[in-house]
């Protein structure tokens, strides 16, 4: 049963999000609702009489089922490529950014499209780094915008990667890696 708190099961949230994309891509776009099973390590420790704690190994892992709302587009055209590139867009309840904390998953879907080993704008798992999380909402994708607008970003991102591969130049605006800008501003 979907968690009633889980936005991905709430039609009031996902219908406006996906409407334009389905109007445009029709049967080429499909959505699946899945649970990811996460196994959390469960370290055990005992307190000695002197008051210090020592680790004695791991107990049974804690198992958690996390919902995902996942869109599959069978392919997008990328200028300069002969084959379409399949796209997967996955919404999770939350998204963790090292150094940037936990963010609302609605505004930070995980997007997979193609592969590029030395891309300057991909995560380690190959997901696309499409926008800087701390930019104002009009300068990043947010859930109030449509899934179709996110797909436009994906197409451009792949074109920009191809350009980077050939010229070594990223020809679109880019933010510093990590959350250094915020840190700098705070300092």
């Amino acid at each position: 049963m979907p968690d009633p708190e889980w936005y991905g099961a709430d039609a009031a949230w996902f219908v406006p999000l996906e409407r334009d994309a389905f109007r445009l891509f029709g049967h080429r776009l499909r959505v699946e609702y899945v649970w990811s099973i996460l196994r959390h390590a469960n370290p055990c420790a005992v307190e000695l009489s002197c008051g210090t704690w020592i680790g004695v190994g791991f107990g049974s892992p804690r198992i958690e089922a996390v919902p995902r709302r996942r869109y599959h587009l069978d392919g997008v055209d990328v200028v300069g490529r002969t084959e379409r590139v399949p796209v997967v867009i996955e919404f999770r309840p939350q998204r963790y950014f090292p150094g940037g904390g936990v963010r609302d998953g609605r505004d930070f879907p995980v997007v997979y499209a193609g592969a590029m080993e030395n891309s300057p704008h991909r995560y380690e798992d190959g997901a696309l780094c499409l926008y800087y999380p701390d930019d104002p909402s009009e300068q990043r994708w947010t859930a109030e915008k449509s899934l179709a607008e996110l797909i436009v970003l994906v197409q451009d991102h792949l074109f920009l990667e191809d350009t980077y591969a050939e010229t070594g130049e990223w020809i679109a605006p880019q933010a510093d890696h990590g959350f250094t800008e915020e840190a700098r501003r705070a300092a």
């Binding site: 150094g99 436009v152 970003l153």
Partner: peptide, 17 residues
């Protein structure tokens, strides 16, 4: 301006964590 047929591009900055 975008390379896409499906609309304009949100003026994002590409980034990496």
């Amino acid at each position: 301006s975008s390379t896409s047929a499906y609309g304009d591009r949100i003026p994002v900055r590409s980034w990496a964590c």
